[in-house]
Design a protein around this nucleic acid. Structure first.
Lengths: 201, 201
DNA sequence: TGAAAATGAATGAATGATCATTCATTTTTA
DNA sequence: TAAAAATGAATGATCATTCATTCATTTTCA
């Protein structure tokens, strides 16, 4: 739980995103974050309770923003194709703009989910993940309700396919030093996924 | 690079798999592994160079075995459906038998890929991942060559979908304390993926 | 109104906890 | 009995966090 807000709070959070992305959480020393944020080591503790608190605050704020925006946009689409396109597009464009965040989400969020240390952390992380999955599930349900998706589709498998495919695409983009244009994959991926989700030929 | 083999080597490696799965690599102390293996802390260093060496050896040996078997079986199938079914089946059954290994692969392998420290490690991890991806790519190519898959399919997107979907299914199984039967998902997932990969309706 | 006191933010070296690894010693083996 | 294997407390490195101190700003007082 962050202690205090302000200009340095933002500086520290942004610095942490960059340094966590570069070195990973476990190889990141607080002094690295402090240096990147141009504050003293001890200053970090005026704003955050601990190193882990920085990571949690980062997820809370930056993912919270992404999820809120995506929820709004997806829900206001009518047909399921637009919903799915919007989800993919927003996820990709947001992450393409902030590859450091993409990196941290990919490599640290799931770890934190599994290795949660206390109830507050647990609830925060679970809430973020739950919202993401609910959004996907909403799309799957819409697809079935609208008669577009295969009515015999197992919603869980659909979720795994959507989530997993997008996740792996972003991961590959990150691992290949972002050499391909993520946004150019929105439409082809949308088609590929829709193909699988629709009634069988 | 492991120093020495023997009974205690296996005991340590198996103990490490269990403890890494339970606590994660970073929250695992060497003393925990030693206790699980029923050896002294210092004995670990008679067999392995370092804590990280344990993890690398684990991947090398246990994933190496899985990949070798999968490569053999997939390659001996003729039609692309059987190839893909075999890949899914083997991956799921192997991991269902060794959930600890599944856990470590899911949560530590990709970290190691990104945070590789030296050339030997880099080559080992990259080799394992490369083989896995090559197997998937082989299936995709077969599908296209056999006229079953959409000829306009981007092989990379196909790879992301196959890899990502399977990976996410296993992850969800792990996170849900393995409450569902992974093997029962082989056929429905196969159909879902094939649906997406085939020519559009 | 200027000086002194109080306050809060920031600092960074010191501290203490942690833990991978070593190595002197003990035990086992052939 | 000598060599090899195993032991586990000690060691030293690492690093998150603390806290005595400094500094800048605001408030108070004469």
């Amino acid at each position: 739980m962050a202690k205090k807000r302000g200009e340095k709070y933002e500086a520290i959070l942004n610095a942490a995103t960059k340094v966590f992305a570069q070195y990973g959480y476990h190889q990141t020393q607080v002094t690295k974050i402090a240096k990147e944020a141009q504050v003293a080591d001890g200053t970090i503790y005026l704003y955050f309770k601990s190193k882990e608190d920085i990571l949690i605050s980062l997820f809370d704020e930056k993912m919270g923003g992404l999820l809120a925006a995506a929820e709004e946009k997806v829900l206001e689409q009518q047909d399921v194709e637009s919903k799915l396109r919007t989800l993919i597009f927003m996820q990709f464009s947001y992450l393409a703009q902030d590859p450091d965040l993409a990196m941290v989400i990919k490599f640290e969020l799931r770890q934190l989910e599994l290795r949660q240390l206390n109830e507050v952390t647990r609830n925060k992380i679970n809430e973020l993940l739950r919202r993401h999955l609910h959004l996907i599930d909403h799309i799957v349900k819409s697809g079935i309700d609208q008669g577009v998706f295969n009515p015999e589709l197992d919603p869980f498998l659909a979720r795994y396919m959507i989530f997993g495919t997008l996740d792996e695409t972003v991961t590959s983009w990150l691992m290949k030093d972002r050499k391909f244009d993520l946004l150019s994959k929105v439409e082809p991926l949308l088609n590929l996924l829709l193909n699988g989700l629709k009634r069988a030929a």
